[in-house]
Nucleic acid binder design. Structure first.
Lengths: 338, 338
DNA sequence: GCCCCAAATGCAAGCGCTTACATTTCTTGC
DNA sequence: GCAAGAAATGTAAGCGCTTGCATTTGGGGC
């Protein structure tokens, strides 16, 4: 270790500006409770010393952190980025800071991140989806940390959420596909055991098939990891089935884009030979060619409303209301009648 | 406010398990210093109470946080995601936690985030690029927070970095484009005043032109915000120039993808009518059609090495070494001879 | 010049944890 | 069964900050 100058503290600032620590604290947090001259002296000392308040100490003394945590499955693509940005923007307007963590879609990691954020003083949490160990919800309850769930909506659950009905959205899209004459359907999905949104979307496809009198057992179904390349590989598998599907419903845009790309590589024309649909409507969906038919999700609004709900709950102590947002199928180039 | 059960503390756990707080603390942090029976009792109490250690208090008492901060310009697309993931993975192996923040490419916001992360106990910081107010570097120095700069490399700077030479990389790509017979060049760039990587890439283009005896003033140059749509609009502008460029060099893949898409909409064939190149080689580059010719950056390695450098510095107290990584032009479908 | 009130500042008690040091409780060898 | 050392546990002093309360200071009004 090199001889390290000690890190400046409130004490040091107080000493240097010739006042008590209380006054320095007030100069920082309530500037107009302090005489202008004093304030200036304190500010000068702060900048000369390169002082930075210690968050931990402050949080402990003030018993507030003004921090909200958000935990998302992945940062590797933009699915959650837009919604989170809106969430953060809204929080900032209320003087709150957002802390993000990602879990790589691993439940164990999510639990770890939840504990970590709570330990770091998160006063509330935004989580994705409903499905997790009940123990976690109990823990958060004990810690007095309200939680808002997003990217999903389940009227039956007592948990607060601002989200949308994944099953209904996917059912609508599937119904449309069937209406266009497709009978041989395939679905490429994320892991339904770990991911309740994926599960709901799968359920939606099945429901639509049943409504149309198709046998759910005829759905060619494949689960895969999250990623463009994974979607591509799954597409290849799915197209090897007999009878070959004429429409491939993808659980999200990333998988759909992978499928689309592999179709091109395999010389399969989209949408002439096969239709492909996605879910989420991320920016990517409009960039690929043909542009992707997909389910549009109001990410920004969701983020904004989730923040509002949390802020309101924190302010009033009242439980949060649940908000169900509408999705919308957007028909672009990858879906055509059979 | 509803009657709120107080949040459990170490005290509560100690009381419930009939030991002192010191023992509880040890049961948590050094389990094998505690008798197995005691340890079990403590663990039981912890889970019954839903106890979670208070990070602030712990950090203050132990004077360590095991936390590293990372501040990136944006999370909205995958440019930084991959490198950051590698950074985080490497840190975790050393028992360190990463905290991320993003700045939306705003210097003022970056400063705020730096202060926030330092306040939260970040023991070191990863930042992108060199360019920022010297005051900030002084502040970090005073706080004893080592910094590693990434996504750029400047042999002349005394600051530590693990990165690559943006100018050289872009110069190489441009030289190749010129070698293929292109004389009328355009460049679509991010803001060069705020973003030193963008500036360096612009410089690289100019250098290559000079080497080839072209007049730098003939470069059609346009700066724009970050985004696919922005790239598309810039492409439109650039193609209105007279003489019309035969190659459009984009400062990053996102802009390039926007350009590519607009070209399709405008009925301009790529690469027959115009060549387009990008920079970064994000996943997007391989998905679009034609696949993008771009500069490949070893993101994962950069993240991993940056973490190693930081860890080593924290362990030994020695200054970090600078590492220059190699980039590589990858030629895919969007570049063709004139 | 004095009194009174408001404004400005200081004092000191914690916030929840870790850890050096002191103390108690086991083991073990004889 | 006992001494001696090891293992387990307890005691208590802070870590850097905020804040209720006490004290000082500074102006007016008379």
């Amino acid at each position: 270790m090199p001889a390290q100058r000690p890190i400046p503290t409130l004490q040091d600032v107080a000493a240097r500006s010739g006042v008590s620590t209380a006054t320095v604290s007030r100069a920082i947090n309530f500037p107009d409770q302090v005489a202008p001259r004093t304030r200036e002296r304190v500010k000068a000392a702060i900048s000369e010393l390169g002082y930075s308040p210690n968050f931990g100490a402050r949080a402990m003394a003030a018993r507030r952190t003004n921090t909200i945590g958000a935990i998302i499955p992945t940062m590797e693509n933009a699915i959650f980025a837009r919604g989170l940005q809106a969430f953060q923007d809204e929080l900032r307007q209320h003087g709150l800071t957002m802390l993000v963590a990602s879990t790589a879609y691993q439940p164990a990691s999510e639990e770890e991140q939840i504990r970590s954020l709570v330990a770091r003083g998160a006063e509330a949490l935004l989580l994705i989806g409903y499905h997790r160990d009940p123990e976690i919800y109990r823990f958060l309850e004990a810690q007095g940390v309200p939680v808002i769930l997003t990217w999903a909506f389940d009227a039956a659950s007592p948990l607060a959420s601002v989200g949308f009905d994944n099953a209904a959205a996917m059912q609508e899209m599937t119904a449309k596909v069937i209406e266009m004459g497709h009978r041989d359907l395939a679905m490429i999905s994320a892991n339904t055991a770990l991911n309740d949104r994926a599960k709901a979307r799968h359920d939606g496809v099945l429901a639509a098939m049943q409504d149309a009198g198709l046998s759910a057992r005829d759905l060619i179904f494949i689960e895969t990891e999250y990623g463009i390349e994974e979607g591509a590989r799954a597409f290849e598998q799915v197209m090897a089935a007999d009878p070959r599907p004429t429409a491939v419903l993808c659980g999200n845009d990333v998988l759909a884009v992978g499928a689309l790309r592999r179709a091109r590589d395999m010389g399969i024309r989209v949408p002439e030979d096969v239709s492909i649909t996605g879910f989420d409507d991320i920016e990517l969906a409009k960039v690929v060619y043909p542009a992707l038919t997909t389910v549009h999700v109001p990410h920004r609004e969701m983020g904004r409303l989730a923040a509002k709900a949390l802020v309101n709950c924190l302010d009033t102590g009242k439980p949060m209301e649940k908000v169900r947002l509408e999705t919308k199928s957007v028909y672009r180039g990858t879906l055509a009648p059979r």
